[in-house]
Design a protein around this nucleic acid. Structure first.
Lengths: 139, 139
DNA sequence: CTGCATGCAAACCGTTTGCATCCCC
DNA sequence: GGGGATGCAAACGGTTTGCATGCAG
């Protein structure tokens, strides 16, 4: 059922992308990763970052978050957890509440889909943006 | 707290966009709406469709779904409900399970965010795609 | 030596925007 | 006649892709 073991070479670029991604607790977009990585590898190409994020996600080394907003976001921790997105600055972080395993079962009873996963995303205003009350622009 | 009453004129274009959106139970992307509307208004511009979907969403006439995938999707029913996305064809539909109001409270206790909403998205394979087993390409 | 990985740049796709024209009040 | 709405097309931002070169096995 799972993808065959993939044999992915850990090049310098991949290693550094992985390291930088692991450093942060927010879930950066591809270009945010690009910016972080470029400080250590100034000549790296945007395409390489995209290709490798995609590739590492396919191989389960990292997670690709399909959250709201236009851009894809990436996450070094692959265990399932829920997220919260700041409607003001767009930042995405983890939220520490237990996974509700029963949800998939409940949903399956009410659907013709073959369901294999779920994700909860909360929306709110992060503490920094709360401080800036007044000059808020909701995204 | 809410937006001031908006005074939005119901032009032919807006009316037809709304009608077409109400016809379908899936939640089409802007260009899917464009295609549907163009059958009745062949000269309508893509820009008009985008502008009006956005505008009607701001005014609470329709809902803009910030679901996974790259494209925004729109929904004629504005009451909150959960969605399921087919990993195979990308289609998004409603899933009929009750809203869990307690979730926001639970999340608020575990976060510094001021939380005001949540959304659950299930992933699975829709019944049509299940039939095509074999020539499936997971998105 | 061979093939995968990279850097670079152009292409691509969904969305937004500027502008001249149109239509409704 | 005036202000918003439209059609059209160009611009934009994020992502993907083609290609020549580079590097590791």
């Amino acid at each position: 059922m799972n993808a065959p073991t993939p044999m992915i070479r850990l090049t310098t670029q991949r290693q550094i992308i992985l390291e930088e991604l692991s450093k942060v607790k927010t879930h950066p977009t591809a270009s945010e990763v690009y910016d972080m990585v470029r400080k250590r590898l100034p000549r790296i190409g945007l395409g390489t970052v995209y290709r490798n994020l995609e590739l590492m996600a396919e191989n389960g080394m990292i997670a690709k978050l399909e959250v709201g907003g236009t851009q894809k976001r990436f996450d070094a921790t692959t265990e399932s957890h829920y997220h919260i997105r700041c409607s003001c600055c767009g930042k995405v972080e983890d939220i520490d509440i237990p996974i509700i395993d029963s949800l998939v079962g409940t949903a399956a009873k009410n659907s013709s889909y073959q369901i294999f996963g779920h994700h909860i995303e909360f929306t709110g205003i992060c503490s920094e943006c709360q401080k800036n009350e007044g000059n808020i622009t909701i995204q």
